Amino acid sequence: MKLGFIGCGNMAQAMITGILKQNVVSPDKLIVSNPHEEKTAKLKEQFGILTTTDNKKTAKEAEIVVLAVKPQVYPEVIKEIRDEVSTEQIIVTIAAGVSMAATERQFGKEMKIVRVMPNTPALVGEGMSGLCCNEYVTEEEFDKVHHIFQSFGKAEKITENLMDAVVGVSGSGPAYVYMFIEAMADAGVAQGLPRKQAYTFAAQTLLGSAKMVLETGQHPGELKDAVCSPAGTTIEAVNTLEKKGFRSAVIEAVNAAAKKNHELGKPKKKEK
């Protein structure tokens, strides 16, 4: 299998690092194109992968082509490569708000398309990705792409109608978590902790708590209850969070991100 990336931003670099570390493909079977050669030079030097400034070369040579460019650049890139790809190749999209139908229309033919929403913790091998595919992708091919995204975190197969929810929960989710860590650390500093230690206490607490949910299989509410001793400090803090609308704020944030992703996928009205 030869894997190609068109685009070499942070997400692409995170994915490439995970793929190569897990030996999903060998370096000589991975090709990356970017108009700015200096952006691929580091990856080429580090991993010995194939690089080029020609998107058409990547599109022509790769069995699976990952479009790792910004959503607004998709029309331009697809127009450039659509005559170079065949209907036997798999196109992987990672752009928010771009449906599989919209991607297929731009190619102008019945393409095998897998739509994925990864997130930035892929940079440290702890990404979360949601994947869906169109009717032209076989189960074996879908499994192959799924395996690629599992190399830098966890990946779940979904149907496309759930993609807005995935964007709201995990695609945009890291930003909410960073804000929570920052707020916890600020409070720690207010209580006397040195800033650096405050960030460590807050971040490790979130990391450990998330691991408890994933590894124990217990309901988050059950784990929360286990920390809340009668008349103790934790239940006092939980009570304050409830009074301040903590859950409601998080739910509204996720819903807002999901709504925005849905709106991004709608055709823009032409100005009169």
Rank of each mutant, 00 (worst) to 15 (best):
M1S: 09
I6W: 02
I6P: 06
G7Y: 01
N10I: 06
A12T: 04
I19G: 02
I19A: 08
L20T: 13
Q22Y: 08
N34V: 07
P35W: 09
P35G: 00
E37F: 13
T40A: 13
K42V: 14
K44E: 13
K44T: 10
Q46G: 01
T53W: 04
D54Y: 09
K56M: 02
T58N: 03
K60C: 00
I64W: 05
V65E: 02
V65F: 06
L67N: 04
A68E: 04
P71F: 00
V73S: 11
V73H: 07
E80H: 09
I81C: 03
R82K: 15
D83T: 14
S86M: 04
Q89D: 05
Q89W: 04
I94F: 10
A95M: 12
A95S: 12
M100F: 05
E104I: 01
G108D: 04
E110M: 05
M111S: 03
V124D: 10
E126C: 12
M128R: 06
G130F: 14
C132M: 08
C132N: 06
F142C: 09
D143C: 09
V145K: 09
S151E: 06
I158F: 14
N161P: 00
L162K: 15
M163A: 08
D164A: 15
V166E: 00
G168K: 05
S170A: 15
G173W: 02
P174M: 07
Y178Q: 01
F180K: 00
I181A: 13
I181C: 02
A183R: 04
A183C: 12
M184S: 03
A185E: 01
A185D: 01
D186H: 11
A187D: 00
V189P: 01
V189F: 03
G192F: 05
R195M: 00
Y199V: 03
F201E: 09
A202S: 14
A203Q: 06
L207N: 08
L207Y: 15
G208T: 09
E215Q: 15
E215V: 04
G217M: 06
G217C: 06
Q218Y: 12
H219F: 09
P220K: 01
G221S: 05
E222K: 15
D225G: 06
C228M: 15
P230I: 11
A231F: 11
E236D: 12
A237Y: 02
E242M: 07
E242N: 11
K244Y: 11
K244E: 13
F246C: 06
S248M: 10
S248L: 12
A249I: 08
V250I: 15
I251N: 04
E252I: 02
A253W: 11
A253N: 09
V254D: 08
N255S: 10
K259V: 02
E263A: 07
K266Q: 15
P267E: 09
P267D: 08
P267T: 11
P267R: 11
P267S: 10
P267I: 09
K268V: 14
E271W: 10
